[in-house]
């Protein structure tokens, strides 16, 4: 078993580390565009009786 699995990481963790590093290793002109994919955002809005009640961002 690989060391990272032993430490409690899974392939999803491995994959995101690998993807982030690949983006950072790109030539400078491509790097800024690629860096935008590092994070993803979710906004959740609760609706009640047709009106937005509360929204939160992650």
């Amino acid at each position: 078993m690989s060391a990272w699995r032993q430490a409690g990481l899974n392939y999803i963790n491995y994959s995101s580390i690998a993807a982030r590093l690949l983006r950072q290793a790109l030539k400078a002109d491509l790097r800024t565009e690629a860096a935008k994919r590092n994070d993803s955002h979710i906004r959740i809005t609760k609706w009640e009786a047709g009106k937005p009640i509360k929204s939160s961002e992650f």
Partner: peptide, 22 residues
């Protein structure tokens, strides 16, 4: 793949930098 790029788009100096940082 999660991320994929033609090898010619990889910056060798940036890659070496990442290795020493790691």
């Amino acid at each position: 793949a999660e991320e994929a790029h033609p090898v010619e788009n990889i910056d060798a100096a940036a890659a070496r930098d990442l290795l020493s940082k790691a």
